[in-house]
C-alpha cells in the first residue's frame, strides 16, 4: 500500500498530497499519515468528494487515514 507522510504539514498541504495520491492510482488503497484532527478531517472530506471510502486509526498523537479507491 502506498503511504503519504503529511505529518507536520498544515492544510491544505495534506489534502493536496492526498488528492495527488488518489489521482495517481487506478484503484486499491492509500495510507495518509497526519498529526492533527483538522488535517484528518480535511483529508477524509477530500477523499469522500472523490467518491473514495476512508478508514481512520489513531496512533498516539497521529492518525492514519486509509483511502480505498474502487
Amino acid at each position: 500500500m502506498k503511504q503519504i507522510d503529511a505529518r507536520g504539514l498544515s492544510c491544505p498541504q495534506p489534502v493536496i498530497m492526498a488528492r495527488k495520491g488518489m489521482a495517481d492510482m487506478s484503484g486499491g488503497k492509500l495510507e495518509v499519515l497526519v498529526d492533527s484532527v483538522t488535517s484528518r478531517d480535511n483529508v477524509m472530506r477530500a477523499a469522500r468528494l472523490e467518491g473514495c471510502e476512508t478508514e481512520v486509526s489513531a496512533k498516539g498523537d497521529e492518525f492514519s487515514v486509509i483511502i480505498s479507491k474502487k
Binding site: 492544510c11 491544505p12 489534502v15 493536496i16 488528492r19 483538522t38 478531517d41 480535511n42 472530506r45 477530500a46 468528494l49
Partner: peptide, 16 residues
C-alpha cells in the same frame, strides 16, 4: 475550523 481564506481557497483548489 472556520476560516474565510480557507473558504475561498477550497472552492478554487478542490471545489469544496
Amino acid at each position: 475550523r472556520f476560516c474565510t481564506m480557507g473558504a475561498v481557497r477550497d472552492v478554487i483548489l478542490t471545489r469544496d
